[in-house]
């Protein structure tokens, strides 16, 4: 590969990204950060957890993205009676022409490129755990056979923070497997006007499929090639360590309010997310500000707060913001 090739790949990356943004923007009003965050997860080979009140467009965003990316899309509505087999699939007994019976695996909805796990916290932990292997290993084991998932495999889970009645909190292990946790806020007045204009008329806008499966995989490879300097990487590590209350570099807020700090997977998310962020902003290297830009999304679900934090009504974002302000930038 030559320098010219690199420049061409970067140019293509930004062109594709711009196309996705424009198409998604035809349906989804505002929430540019959330769209970028979802794209970041997709390009960094991660999965995303979307949190927001009902009706702000979480599911619509995922559906739109699936339409734009020209990927195989499936949706699972998580309910308390949902079973793991409903997600992964199940082996059924079949009879061949000779009358012999055999088991045939019937793939579940997880065998798709883009999986929407709607209201993921409404199912039991057992069912939620069915996603663990798929999210981490990109494979599914059923009936003693491990089956790889088609790439790209991308899980978008939505979670409603208000409907806590009849829900099950996500286990830490599963939370850690989500690359980003994004929050969708209530739209502003002008954005709400735009939403109403688009959705309350006879004809709703349609999107076109712009990116093929191969292009997404190429963009994923491009992200991994972005160089990062050691000082910036060191900054990401220091930031992660500052969330550990037992660490020497722990921040005072971490010592007081955090029970468990972010995992190494969180640091990986920081670096990969920073690489995508750098490319989105047309840079060929990762800067400290790229790490800072993705730190909240990458770490907010990876730190476990203690009782004191809940008593003081301190959330993870507030703690991480204070920690970021105290950790010295790369030098």
């Amino acid at each position: 590969m030559t320098v010219a090739n690199v420049e061409r790949r970067i140019e293509q990356f930004q062109k594709n990204l711009q196309l996705v943004r424009e198409e998604v923007g035809r349906i989804i009003v505002g929430n540019r950060d959330v769209v970028d965050g979802v794209m970041t997860c997709l390009l960094a080979r991660g999965h995303v957890l979307l949190e927001g009140i009902p009706g702000v467009g979480k599911t619509k965003l995922v559906q739109t993205l699936a339409d734009v990316l020209h990927l195989k899309f499936s949706r699972i509505q998580f309910t308390p009676d949902l079973m793991p087999g409903d997600i992964i699939g199940t082996s059924i007994v079949r009879e061949d022409e000779g009358g012999r019976k055999y088991f045939e695996f019937q793939p579940g909805p997880i065998f798709a490129n883009m999986l929407l796990a709607d209201e993921v916290n409404r199912s039991t932990p057992k069912t939620q755990s069915a996603l663990l292997e798929a999210m981490q290993e990109n494979s599914v084991t059923a009936g003693g056979t491990t089956r790889p998932l088609e790439q790209p495999f991308f899980v978008l889970a939505t979670m409603n923070p208000l409907e806590m009645e009849g829900t099950y909190p996500l286990p830490e292990a599963q939370l850690d497997r989500f690359f980003f946790k994004l929050k969708m806020g209530f739209p502003a007045i002008d954005q709400l006007h735009e939403v109403l204009d688009r959705t309350t008329h006879a004809r709703e806008p349609q999107v076109e499929r712009t990116l093929a499966q191969g292009e997404i995989l190429e963009m994923r490879d491009t992200v991994r090639d972005v160089p990062i300097a050691r000082p910036v990487q060191d900054y990401a590590i220091r930031l992660t360590l500052a969330t550990h209350p037992e660490s020497e570099q722990a921040h005072e807020m971490a010592k007081r309010y955090i029970r468990f700090g972010a995992s190494p997977r969180g640091t990986q998310a920081l670096i990969l997310g920073a690489k995508v962020h750098a490319l989105i902003h047309e840079r060929l290297h990762v800067a400290t500000e790229d790490v800072q830009a993705v730190a909240l999304s990458a770490l907010r679900h990876r730190i476990l707060l203690n009782f004191e934090a809940e008593a003081d009504r301190i959330d993870a974002d507030a703690i991480l913001t204070r920690i970021m302000a105290s950790v010295a930038p790369a030098s």
């Binding site: 160089p227 990062i228 300097a229 050691r230 000082p231 910036v232 840079r283 290297h285 800067a287 500000e289």
Partner: peptide, 9 residues
């Protein structure tokens, strides 16, 4: 944006 720092490294 850390250009010189990264360049040195």
């Amino acid at each position: 944006h850390d250009t010189l720092k990264s360049a040195l490294d």
